[in-house]
Write a protein that binds this DNA or RNA. Structure first.
Lengths: 207, 207
DNA sequence: AAGTTAATTGAACAGTGTTCATTAGGTTGA
DNA sequence: TCAACCTAATGAACACTGTTCAATTAACTT
């Protein structure tokens, strides 16, 4: 067959990504293969290469969607609460998302191209995620320099990410299901308290 | 050839692991293959399967060695300093180790068996790493319940791990080379300050 | 109806992990 | 000394993988 034009390029791409995600959810990242995706959408292997540069490209595009979903989930958290609670809600949502889409989450952070870094647009999406945290921190510490807010956001969120990762890989072995959330709560509370404490001292010294 | 007995099983295993590590360091985890390892040590593919259950097993054994090296590095940090400084030194050493052995470090945390968890002995090694942190925290907060120390150690070290991972994957994009260390310092200082703060409050309330 | 075009194919190639019947070097016993 | 045995070591075979690209053929044009 040739020139079927059953689907546009965009449709083909969407079908492939969707099929790949299903495969990923059901069988994990190791099971992702071009032949399986192709046969799942009723096209041949070669057709995938009309729409994706290679399997790596397909993975990055899945990652982009995963990251979009994650960002959306975080954004859906109620804004009608104090920044500190919202940060905790973010962390919780982050943990839940990783739990619900464990294979997608694993692909997002495990997958690394042989050569070169993640694509730019992916990096921008991650930056946007950090941005959410920065907003809350800026609200909590309006007198802080922007650079310090940026550093704090990355520190705090790096921490949440690390806890999530260890949890996902069963390398926490402590305290059952609720442990991870207790840890992110503890992290956020103590980090913010420690920060306030330092600010108070600074003020005290200045005056 | 057969029955050469040039090397014992133990020697063969050591040769294979060592060759695999070299391959890993030079070409990354994706380049690790049974045929390459076999040819590097002058044996055939089949011989590897006399010593390792499969490639996964070989990877786990590399990971064990990586984790041992990491633990040793941390243990070499001077004990002749206050617990807080030692914790920072640990975090620093952790970052340095990940930087120096980036491919080994990536294999350690990316590699996940298709089915089932990491082997038990690996989990014990990780627990031992957490133990180092617990010692310092217990020294800092002698009145804290052991369970709280355990949780805090995992929280803090999960955070350091997360920062390290984002750094390694270039997903921090902030502040150049020194950023990661500034972040772990910030994390440890603020977390400990926040903890002390909370303890003071608790004491104040009680009295 | 014949010609043109390009969407789609799938065989081919080079690689992968894993298995296991075969082989050949070392050891043993006569 | 030499045949018998044993077993460490092999590497061909199998079923997979990603990727390419000449060949095919359905649909459009004339």
């Amino acid at each position: 067959m040739a020139r079927r034009s059953d689907h546009t390029r965009e449709e083909l791409q969407e079908m492939a990504l969707s099929a790949a995600e299903t495969l990923l959810d059901e069988q994990g990242g190791a099971a992702l293969s071009t032949r399986k995706v192709a046969s799942a959408i009723g096209y041949s292997v070669g057709s995938l290469y009309l729409v994706f540069k290679n399997l790596d490209d397909l993975c990055w595009q899945i990652n982009a969607r995963t990251l979009d979903g994650l960002t959306q989930t975080l954004e859906q958290q109620s804004t009608d609460q104090p920044p500190r609670d919202r940060l905790k809600a973010y962390a919780n949502a982050y943990l839940d998302y990783a739990r619900e889409w464990s294979h997608r989450w694993a692909l997002l952070f495990d997958h690394s191209t042989d050569e070169g870094d993640a694509p730019e647009w992916l990096q921008e999406k991650i930056a946007a995620l950090f941005g959410l945290v920065e907003i809350d921190l800026a609200e909590l510490y309006p007198n802080e320099k922007p650079e310090d807010i940026t550093l704090a956001a990355r520190t705090l969120w790096g921490g949440v990410h690390g806890i999530t990762q260890l949890k996902m890989r069963d390398k926490l072995f402590f305290g059952g299901d609720s442990a991870a959330q207790r840890m992110t709560d503890s992290l956020i509370d103590r980090y913010l308290d420690g920060w306030s404490h330092a600010e108070d001292n600074a003020k005290g010294d200045a005056e």
